[in-house]
Design a protein around this nucleic acid. Structure first.
Lengths: 368, 368
DNA sequence: GTCGGTACCTAAACCGGTATAGTTTGTCTA
DNA sequence: TAGACAAACTATACCGGTTTAGGTACCGAC
């Protein structure tokens, strides 16, 4: 037999140095493959796989078996196009990464969303933008290509323009907390009020009379609502409610606010912070200026963090179940997308966890 | 003509009470609408919109104008199906939400990814699972339906089974850090070594001779590498390198490890922690047991957090630029997906930031 | 005058599902 | 024994893009 000239004779070709040593790609099966293998039409396979009537029991099991042995998995891409659905939810976080990093809320919240989404085969598309002005674009990007079926709106603001935007984009949504505008979107909310009130009355019970609040931005609804609850609690007790300082939720700004409060001629004996990172930073400022917490100054946080329980003194804080929020929001949104008319959900109110950073005030009021 | 009995005659049906008061939905335009409006074929519109040759300049501009006035936006769903691409990247985070919450790394990392992704129109699909065993499922879900074109692998472990898994799933990937197995995936890495070495020699320069390390899980590569660097630095200085305690990265476990170290007969005068939350918890333990930091004990953290700079004393730490990591990883992965052959990227090594929690050790060594 | 080539454009297939109209088969009824 | 009707199944259109195979028209060249 003549040597084959097309492939030069010689030593057996050494295995060519593939970057990936995979010779043949499995080429994952489509519904057409299943149909051919089962000897039925494509449409019938679709029926069988979606548990719809009009398929004889025998045929149905045969189709399912073939699909299983072939390892068939539905293509979300095809299904998306065909059903005009994305099978995904969107979450846009519009905060400076530095702030989010310090805030234990989002990771737990996202974990809660995932817990609900995973079993349904849906996915979470996350978009994180630094500035609020880029937020519009983020939502537009998500919806324009049809990437998501709905979004979860966090960090609601006063007169939040996103409500209008989402509405105009014809998208489903749920809000975290009740917006201050009429909204056609269901809301998942926790009443911050009881937690703040608990914190304030805890401090009053201990004997504090000058209590300050280091709050979040008033432009954010939960920020302003915590401040409102704080003021209301103090007024009801007949105390001065004017010691409220607004911050941007960062540890740095929390430290600044604390310095300001401690520099007053009649400084407060207790400070209620709107989140844990600020409380921890405030604790640092107090200690730095020679005060002993809680002997000279009591401190409470919000949104219980892991570290708060381990610092010295450990932080009295108001805990919220971020995971439960996430799960509830995802569940509600999925149902809304499914066409159900859904109602708002009220979750259990935030609760105070008393630890070491709060105690009776000094007997002689400071600087008086 | 006999009255139609199928639809009973009667007053005109009143407008049904819509929940949304939007009468007509805009029905966003497709490429076919553009084609009809511009008087050309669908295919030509596709050519014009994708800057491909074969379209006369006049026609091209006309098509683009029509597309603009109609407000046409490409459907990612259709494009996905047609091009067999998802136009999305996946990130699976397999840690307990509590740990992630305390760790400032991920938010910044994700922000970095977004910064690269947003301009390209791609999206980030996030999956967060609590247990490692659910991880496989998470990756499978992402890839099966074709939701992502590639994934970013964080928290590499020893003999990480995911490398094999991703490979078998025929997916693109980048790893954060070099895996300990041969891998066909490009890696983005920061050498933790210099940061740890800087921290150790900083402490040695201050006069410390008994230095301990509270490290991450040895099963995680960056955990064990930090520990290795720590040991090597000490050995090179001729010091005891045996004081290494393994933790799970949580503040609670950091506190436990610190207690253990401080309870020793000859306790260390300095502790190098593998992350900031553990360092802060460790600081709490030290203070609780009556030690003054940094006079009696020096402490360093890792992965500089926002709060670390505001506690008292402020935390000496090793900073890593998580945002830069994220951006680099996303960029690399996009290029790999595009078919380019890409090389590993080495980022600037982590650097020590000296603050207040490190100082000269006490003159009389403790408990001796 | 026609041949070849290029520039511009159309028609139609394709991606992998779902939805719907229509066909076959069998059974029950009149 | 035809007609009605339901069950089981097939064929095909459709979602909205991309891609490829053709098809004109116009050009210069021989």
């Amino acid at each position: 037999m003549a040597p084959d000239v097309t492939t030069p004779a010689g030593p057996p070709t050494p295995a060519k140095p593939l970057r990936s040593a995979k010779p043949l790609k499995p080429a994952k099966p489509t519904i057409t493959d299943v149909a051919r293998e089962a000897g039925v039409s494509k449409g019938l396979v679709s029926f069988a796989l979606n548990d719809r009537p009009g398929v004889s029991p025998d045929t149905r099991t045969r189709i399912l078996e073939v699909a299983a042995t072939l390892g068939w998995k539905p293509s979300i891409r095809a299904r998306s196009l065909s059903e005009s659905k994305a099978f995904a939810l969107g979450l846009v976080i519009a905060r400076d990464p530095g702030i989010i990093a310090a805030d234990p809320f989002f990771p737990a919240f996202i974990a809660g969303i995932e817990r609900v989404l995973a079993p349904t085969g849906q996915a979470l598309v996350l978009s994180m933008v630094a500035e609020e002005k880029a937020e519009d674009q983020a939502y537009r990007r998500l919806v324009e290509g049809g990437r998501v079926d709905g979004v979860i709106l966090t960090d609601l603001r006063r007169d939040d323009p996103r409500l209008e935007l989402i509405d105009s984009l014809d998208l489903h949504a749920v809000t975290l907390g009740h917006p201050d505008l009429p909204s056609r979107f269901p809301a998942v909310s926790i009443d911050d009020g009881p937690g703040i009130r608990e914190a304030v009355s805890h401090l009053i019970d201990l004997g504090h009379r000058r209590i300050a609040h280091v709050g979040g931005p008033r432009s954010m609804l939960h920020g302003s609502r915590r401040a409102d609850s704080f003021r209301a609690s103090l007024r009801e007790a007949g105390l001065d409610d004017s010691l409220v300082i607004e911050t941007d939720f960062t540890a740095a700004d929390g430290a600044r606010a604390t310095s300001e409060l401690l520099g007053m001629s009649r400084r407060p004996t207790a400070i209620v912070f709107a989140n844990d990172p600020m409380a921890i930073a405030g604790l640092g400022v107090a200690q730095r200026s020679g005060l002993v917490v809680p002997d000279d100054l009591s401190i409470t946080g919000f949104d219980g963090s892991d570290v708060g329980g381990h610092i010295h003194p450990s932080l009295t804080t108001v805990t919220t179940e971020a995971q439960v929020w996430g799960a509830a929001a995802a569940e509600l949104l999925l149902r809304a997308i499914d066409g159900e008319t859904v109602d708002d959900i009220e979750l259990d109110p935030a609760r105070l966890v008393i630890r070491e950073s709060s105690a009776t005030p000094p007997i002689t009021p400071p600087a008086e």
